[in-house]
Design a protein around this nucleic acid. Sequence first.
DNA 1: CGCCTGCAAGGTGTATACACTTTGCAGGCG
DNA 2: CGCCTGCAAAGTGTATACACCTTGCAGGCG
Lengths: 234, 234
Amino acid sequence: MGRARAGKPSRSDKIYAALRQAIVEQALRPGDRLPEDAIGDCFGVSRTSVRAALARLHAERLVEARRNRVAIVASPDPTEAQEIFDMRRCLEQEVARRLAGRLTAAQVETLEQHVRLEEQTSMPDSQAASQLAGDFHRLLAGMVNNRILTRYVSELLSRSSLILALYGQAHSTDCAVSEHRAIVAALSRGDAAAAVQAMQHHLGTVEKRSSIKEDDARNYDVGAILKRYAVKET
Amino acid sequence: MGRARAGKPSRSDKIYAALRQAIVEQALRPGDRLPEDAIGDCFGVSRTSVRAALARLHAERLVEARRNRVAIVASPDPTEAQEIFDMRRCLEQEVARRLAGRLTAAQVETLEQHVRLEEQTSMPDSQAASQLAGDFHRLLAGMVNNRILTRYVSELLSRSSLILALYGQAHSTDCAVSEHRAIVAALSRGDAAAAVQAMQHHLGTVEKRSSIKEDDARNYDVGAILKRYAVKET
DNA sequence: CGCCTGCAAGGTGTATACACTTTGCAGGCG
DNA sequence: CGCCTGCAAAGTGTATACACCTTGCAGGCG
């Protein structure tokens, strides 16, 4: 099950980690099929461990699992995508509010070092850049001393890469490094209002870059639309 | 796996639901052992389905599962308990902010009816009252149109009953109905500031009632304390 | 009497087997 | 030619078997 204290990771832990990374890196894309036995063969284990891993990913909403049907990588519809960004704004704004003026020198240094690392990354649209951008947000959230907040932000971050995969182009620079720098600056000079605003602005541009049309949310549910033209069954 | 659209619930779904309710109702209390085969016998199913149910409960942090050891009902330490309430304040304050002045007449009526139901409940310290109190918060969260927010609040609500079981007395009135009424009133007259404040105050008293001493958080981690007196290994 | 050792019982990790469900396709029928 | 039918292939749901880990206790040893 969820590996506890540094004990040997179980097989399902390893498969969980592998699948998770593959999904976040967009090697597996939304809608891709995840048959238990195929995955099992591929890792040299039985379906049992694969099932456990898939169940865990399902709990994190990274895979969809319908009864008696093959599991697939989750593909958030536009409404869900908006909910995810909405929630990120809510939580990460809170992160900014709580961190402003309360960071130790060491923490500020860690953040600045990370931003420098992001700047130095040669290919700005690479998978590595995408990873680093996510890490920045995770790092920040982790500095608030609340593991639940950390977990929620982390979950939303992973799901964000599904959205990027669906609605953005490949690894289009999901985060502008300059915006990260602005957030760190506001935080370290203790300007809570500016920090919150920088975070909100940043998440706004991230969402815009993923080009989810507001219309999409209304038009997406094919079933609901067609239902209006069909007679009710049951 | 997580039952999708109205398909027959699988065995693990049923066991999941049963265990979950037993935990929330405090029939199973924090620290209680949950051996897979015993539970399986009790429900007439094999360990397979039980494992799936336990994994799901573990993902929601209602049970703790250490490798090769029997799973137990989660018992949040004081620090964790504070994190949970902290997070509830954060999220439910957001709920209040978003709902103020935006409730339809029907929604207000639903809420008022629920509060009336709470008032009419004869035994104020019963399991039923506790359930209704939780439902009030769930109801509120559900009215914000964001399923992620709804899910997070719901998860925190369940975990709160673990805290009550550990640090409060049995089903001590976890929520004062009058405070619920005050929240509804502020929301329906569109006073966001008052609504947020009423919610904060309410959660403050809920936390106080559960009598988690602040000291507890500092003193709890036996390991950390003893570590200072021991030589480092590894 | 107390501590350590080792063993048995309790429990989990994982593979495998089999029944049942879903799906895609081939072939017949209009 | 297109639609429907039915069957085979693919895949999941669940039980069972067995190896291994963990724990508590009994009995020996100091």
